[in-house]
């Protein structure tokens, strides 16, 4: 096994897990809405990016368009549909799943079964007999930046504090003058924009088709469940754990065993740590503080 291969594959896998999960984690962790249409939100971001790039926009601009389109769609959907579904967990699952189906078939009707694809920029890093796509490796720092940015927004800004207050105790927050409706809308839009960003980032390296959302769904849900209740820490930890397991097993035994190992890890974590990885961190912290 080549060590650099492993490092690059870890970077690749970590970024994929984190970026697939982060939008879902924000919406689920902050609002308690399980967005089963999450994969399709990512697909919308990818379509926005690819279509703008095909229309002649430089890739970074096209990506910004992809994010913007998904955020606007998130805003509209929150105002019209999602806001009726707070505190209705199962209803929200059925409704968002239906939204996903409508988005998939809607894109198929609007743009056909496939659109011209954008190629991956930036070439490759060659080392000895091996080489790896530079773009895929750079997704790791991007994923870390996204996590860092979210940490700052939710802990260091007034908006973040209001948003968290709304999630923890909406009645008290409202009594203290927080416009909780607006907080919910804003949080949902942030989650949607993150899904759009994931779509935008993967548009040049995956196949952009109406059904592409489903390829993110497994990693996204496994990461959120393995991560546990704390959004940011959970996503980071599960990205780290699942990324490592996937990279090691894929490298040793091939892609099939990489997937099996990742799902087995999820089962073990859920069985042993019912509150996910962040639950473990919390209990360790409590024990240390208790002593």
């Amino acid at each position: 096994m080549n060590a650099l291969n492993l490092v690059f594959q870890f970077a690749d896998n970590f970024a994929f897990v984190v970026l697939a999960a982060v939008g879902l984690a924000v919406i689920f962790g902050m609002m308690g809405v399980i967005n089963l249409g999450h994969g399709e939100f990512i697909m919308i971001g990818a379509y926005g990016t690819t279509l703008s790039a095909n229309a002649g926009a430089p890739l970074p601009v096209a990506m910004a368009v992809g994010v913007l389109v998904t955020a606007v769609m998130g805003f509209v959907l929150e105002r019209t549909i999602i806001h009726r579904l707070y505190d209705r967990l199962f209803d929200s699952m059925v409704a968002t799943w239906a939204l996903g189906l409508i988005l998939t078939q809607g894109m198929r009707i609007l743009f056909g079964n496939s659109i011209p694809q954008v190629s991956t920029p930036l070439g490759n890093i060659a080392y000895g007999e091996f080489s790896y796509s530079t773009y895929r490796v750079l997704l790791l720092p991007v994923a870390l930046l996204v996590l860092g940015g979210l940490y700052v927004v939710f802990t260091r800004t007034e908006f973040g504090i209001r948003a968290r207050a709304t999630i923890q105790d909406p009645d008290t927050a409202r009594a203290l003058g927080v416009d909780t409706d607006r907080m919910y809308t804003a949080t949902f839009v942030i989650g949607s924009a993150l899904a759009g960003l994931t779509g935008a980032l993967y548009a040049p390296t995956l196949t952009v088709v109406p059904g592409m959302g489903s390829s993110f769904l497994v990693e996204a849900f496994v990461a959120v469940v393995v991560g546990g209740p704390s959004v940011l820490l959970g996503t980071t930890l599960s990205g780290g754990l699942l990324g490592t397991i996937d990279a090691v097993f894929t490298n040793l035994f091939g892609t099939f065993y990489g997937q099996i190992a990742m799902l087995l890890t999820a089962i073990v974590v859920i069985r042993v740590l019912s509150n996910g990885l962040t639950g473990l961190v919390e209990s360790v912290r409590n024990r240390v503080e208790g002593e």
């Binding site: 594959q9 390829s215 892609t255």
Partner: peptide, 19 residues
């Protein structure tokens, strides 16, 4: 190498071919 239909990431497959 047999690749599940759900796989979208081919980094390791490409490395294996190079090896």
């Amino acid at each position: 190498e047999f690749i599940p239909l759900s796989v979208t990431d081919f980094g390791s497959t490409i490395n294996n071919i190079q090896e």
